[in-house]
Simulated assay, not measured.
Amino acid sequence: MFDASHQLALEDELSKAKSFHMDGFGRNPHWEDAEMVSAVLHDFFRDHYCLTASSAGMHRF
């Protein structure tokens, strides 16, 4: 959704920001492959201690 210069600017400003390049997707990857996007988001939040083992309804795909 952002070009390389915007991605780098976001990463510079947001210390925990991560960029993911998803080949073959349009502007709505969450509609095109919801499970993959969910797994990426879940891993990000888990790695940044926003999720705990007891988080209700959270599953690893």
Results as ranks from 00 to 15, higher is better:
M1F: 00
M1R: 05
F2L: 11
D3M: 00
D3P: 06
A4E: 15
H6L: 03
H6G: 09
H6N: 10
Q7V: 09
Q7I: 09
L8T: 14
L8K: 15
L8A: 15
L8F: 04
L10T: 08
E11L: 15
L14E: 10
L14I: 15
S15A: 14
S15G: 15
K16I: 06
K16M: 10
A17F: 06
A17I: 04
K18E: 15
S19I: 10
H21A: 13
H21V: 06
H21K: 15
M22C: 07
D23H: 09
D23V: 08
G24M: 03
G24I: 00
G26W: 01
G26E: 09
N28E: 07
P29R: 00
P29V: 03
H30Q: 14
H30R: 14
H30P: 03
W31A: 09
E32I: 08
E32L: 09
E32A: 10
D33W: 02
D33G: 01
A34I: 05
A34F: 01
M36P: 02
M36D: 03
M36S: 07
V37K: 00
V37W: 00
V37Q: 01
S38Y: 08
S38R: 04
S38C: 10
A39T: 06
A39Y: 05
V40S: 00
L41E: 03
L41H: 04
H42M: 08
H42S: 04
H42A: 07
F44K: 04
F44P: 07
F45R: 06
F45P: 03
F45L: 15
F45A: 12
R46V: 04
R46A: 07
D47G: 12
D47Y: 00
D47P: 05
D47S: 13
D47F: 00
D47C: 10
Y49L: 11
Y49E: 15
A53F: 00
A53D: 05
A53C: 03
A53I: 02
S54C: 10
S54Y: 02
S54L: 11
A56D: 12
A56L: 13
G57N: 13
G57H: 11
M58W: 07
M58R: 12
H59C: 05
H59I: 05
R60T: 12
F61K: 08
F61P: 01
